Simulated scan of single mutants.
Amino acid sequence: MPKMSVAFAMTLLVLGNIIAVFSDALIKALPSETAVYQFILFRQCTAVLMLLPFCLINKKNKLFSNIKWHFVRSHVWLLGVIFMVLSLQALPLATANAIFYAAPLFVLPLGFLFYKDRLNFPTIAASILGFAGILVIVQPKQINLGAVFALIVAVTMALNNLLVRKLPQHHTVYQTLLLTNLLGIPFALGLAIWEGQPFDWRSLITAASSNVFILIYAGICVQVYRHIEAYKVSSAEYSGLIGAVVVGIILFNEVPNMTLLVGSALIILPLIWLATLESMRFRQKTG
């Protein structure tokens, strides 16, 4: 399998995070009376239907061989989806996304704890400045459930990216995404039955539409974190905040203020600095 460069991996993560914002926007636009667990079940099922044709093309790899870590990761993913929907219903789009992008901060210590990933000054500094930018944007005056839910989402995102390295290498990206959604369906179905809400076609359509965006993002994450150590590229996850700001302005009339601009600068400028350092190291090694 060819080696992916750090610069290309970071570019993919930037693109993936911007795409993921559109999935969040669709979820935020859901009516307040939407049955949350039914919507999540629809997301899981429609994702499987979308991915199945791509998995059937390649029948060489055994889909259900060695799926222990797929099972674990699928339920971490499902937990993240549940709290993502709840947090988007409770917070403005830009605020929720700002907290979501605390995920790279959790990647660093968790990566060190699980895999003994090496930490260096540039990656630590970029993450700390990025977190400072998030605090500037959010301006937390009190802890509320929406913010707690969003922080849980950030932790699950970090765990999902780190667990990719535990997955069997013979599974393709499509198979990995299929198993991530398929193995969580029984639990999601149980939650939907417990919820006891009538079937809603609008919720199904929105779930399928948001899946198109989020599956692209998830596929990019699997591809990147399978090739590159998390500490080298995780800061690129912050970039989707710009997309959240733009979408928030257009769709939800969330006009940015000076604190948002300052916070965004604290996130983006260290990212550019980190990418520049990695590019210089790459040129030195290849030159």
Rank of each mutant, 00 (worst) to 15 (best):
F213N: 01
L163Q: 02
F199H: 01
G190F: 02
A154P: 04
Q38D: 14
F42H: 02
L177S: 12
R165N: 09
F8N: 02
L110Q: 11
V224N: 00
W69H: 12
L63R: 00
N120V: 06
F114T: 02
K28I: 00
F71H: 05
S239D: 03
I268D: 09
P256W: 15
K166D: 10
F282P: 04
L271F: 13
F252P: 05
S87Q: 04
L162R: 09
Y174I: 08
A192Y: 15
F187M: 12
A150Y: 08
M157S: 14
N66S: 14
I205Y: 06
T286L: 13
L277V: 02
F149G: 05
A35T: 11
K60C: 01
L215T: 03
Y37M: 12
P2E: 01
F149T: 11
L151D: 09
A236M: 03
D24K: 06
E229S: 15
L110I: 13
P2L: 01
L30E: 03
A25E: 10
V164I: 15
L215Q: 05
S87D: 03
V21W: 00
L269G: 02
L189F: 14
N58R: 13
V155D: 11
H170V: 01
I143Q: 06
V247H: 02
Y217S: 15
L261D: 06
L15N: 00
L93Y: 00
V255W: 14
N17S: 06
I216C: 13
Y174N: 13
R118G: 07
V72Q: 06
Q284P: 06
F114H: 00
L51W: 03
K59Y: 02
I205M: 07
A29D: 10
V136R: 04
I128E: 06
V81E: 05
E33C: 08
R226W: 08
V36T: 03
C221V: 06
I67N: 13
N257F: 02
E229D: 09
G80D: 01
F42M: 00
L182N: 07
C45S: 15
L52F: 15
T286A: 05
T11E: 01
Y115I: 10
F131W: 12
L215A: 04
Q142M: 05
S32F: 07
Y101A: 02
A192P: 10
W69P: 03
L110A: 11
L189D: 12
Y225M: 10
L129T: 05
L179W: 15
K116N: 09
R202W: 03
G243I: 13
Y231Q: 12
